[in-house]
Design a protein around this nucleic acid. Structure first.
Length: 407
DNA sequence: TCTGGGGTCCTAGGACCC
DNA sequence: TCTGGGGTCCTAGGACCC
């Protein structure tokens, strides 16, 4: 049996979920904004109680109240024709497509549908790797029907079942490995299926731009271009040593394999989180001295949220760090590793405060973030260190008593 | 009216230990 | 006394992905 790996990608997931609720919007340009939870919440409330017919065809006037530093999460295909898509600033999107309808992200609904489509897949093909809210890899190799027509039969079954049970469409690529499956799933969007066999590398993969490889981002792409390499075929024509000389041992060797369609990464069924973080961009840039009170409040809230996330999910961590972004978009991080693990808000606040002291604070800030890394399961930590439970219950009081006003 | 939030992984230098 | 290597941990930054 040959290895058959599928990559499944929900089509315009966030927007499609909203379209289920507002079917009248089908075919219209709709964008889902903004990533900023507080503003999404404000926007959602402004819709509440209104009959759908009263949602303005142009909802962008709402942006007057939507002080919007948000970006688009997803756009419907009708909206994409105007050049509007993921990660585009909302204000720019309003210019490109003023008639577009703006809807806020409904995280509760998104989580519900995400769980639903993954459960459907697991029922049919249990070897599934979760790659985020709207994407998975599936190992078709030993699943009944997984080999028929190169995987097309099973892909069709999954696609059909998801649509019947949720009303959502998806695109599937099936290939000998994750690398090729990921590329294949993009060939025929939306609601498409693409099969790639070993022998089709030259015909289907080599003509593509290097940027289509998952892992080649804007920086690597630019560097490749500067070296005269635009397509995967051109990349495959380079010697291993040449790639290593320009991109380093690891990346160079990886590029060499990727260009040949080689990828032996397994399907990963379960994984443990490495870090958890909360960050927020302010509505306006803040100054560490002049806006000290406001910043202090936000800072404390971020620490409280991270602590709550850790506790809810049952993790403790020992590397505590901050991130901040200045008004010129330059960002810095500082972190500190403790010798005990914690999920306590006050401890996090105290250590993060120390980190903040090590960073220049003369320039205006636009973002502040708090991160806890080096995570382990809280249950295992308590098991392995009898003192652990006590530490968790009773944080280092002597440290906290000295907690400074802000930084 | 520029550019969200939550992640992972890699690199590279320094400390420290054997 | 000088030199050296390997290994691990910590920290900061950056690329990339969803």
């Amino acid at each position: 049996m040959t290895r058959r790996i599928a990559h499944l990608d929900m089509d315009a997931f966030y927007a499609s979920v909203e379209l289920l609720r507002y079917p009248q919007l089908k075919g219209l340009p709709v964008v889902i904004g903004g990533g900023r939870r507080s503003e999404d919440e404000a926007l959602r409330q402004s819709f509440e109680g209104q009959a759908l017919s009263r949602i303005p065809v142009s909802a962008f006037p709402l942006l007057k109240n939507y002080t919007g530093r948000g970006v688009i999460t997803t756009a419907t295909y009708a909206a994409r024709q105007f050049g509007v898509g993921s990660a585009l600033g909302l204000m720019k999107a309003a210019k490109l497509c003023p008639q577009a309808i703006l809807l806020p992200v409904d995280f509760t609904e998104i989580r519900k549908y995400s769980r639903a489509f993954k459960d459907i897949i697991l029922d049919i093909a249990p070897l599934m790797e979760d790659r985020g809210v709207d994407e998975v890899y599936i190992d078709f190799t030993d699943i009944p029907g997984g080999q028929r027509e190169g995987g097309r039969v099973l892909a069709r079954l999954i696609q059909k079942t998801i649509f019947e049970q949720t009303g959502l469409t998806c695109s599937v690529g099936v290939a000998p490995n994750k690398l090729l499956a990921k590329m294949a799933s993009e060939f025929n969007k939306p609601n498409g299926i693409s099969i790639v066999h070993e022998g089709e590398l030259e015909a289907k993969i080599w003509p593509l731009a290097c940027r289509k490889i998952n892992g080649i981002g804007p920086k690597a792409d630019e560097k490749l271009r500067s070296l005269g390499i635009e397509t995967i075929a051109q990349m495959a024509a380079q010697e291993l040593q040449w790639l290593i000389d320009h991109f380093g041992q690891k990346t160079g060797a990886w590029m060499y394999d990727a260009a040949r369609g080689q990828d032996s990464r397994p399907i990963v069924l379960e994984s443990e989180p490495v870090s958890m973080s909360r960050e927020t961009s302010f509505e306006r840039d803040l100054h560490a001295v002049r806006d000290k009170a406001e910043l202090g409040e936000l800072f404390t809230r971020l620490c409280t949220q991270v602590a709550a996330d850790l506790q809810r999910k049952g993790y403790v961590g020992k590397t505590i760090g901050i991130k901040l972004k200045y008004d010129d978009f330059k960002s810095v991080t500082r972190d500190q590793t403790l010798d005990t693990y914690t999920a306590d808000a006050q401890t996090i606040r105290q250590v993060a405060g120390q980190c903040l002291k090590r960073v220049p604070l003369t320039q205006r800030l636009r973002l502040l973030g708090v991160r806890v890394g080096s995570l382990v399961k809280a249950s295992e930590y308590e098991l392995n260190t009898p003192a652990g439970a006590a530490e968790l219950a009773e944080p280092a009081i002597d440290l906290i008593s000295k907690t400074p006003q802000l930084f």
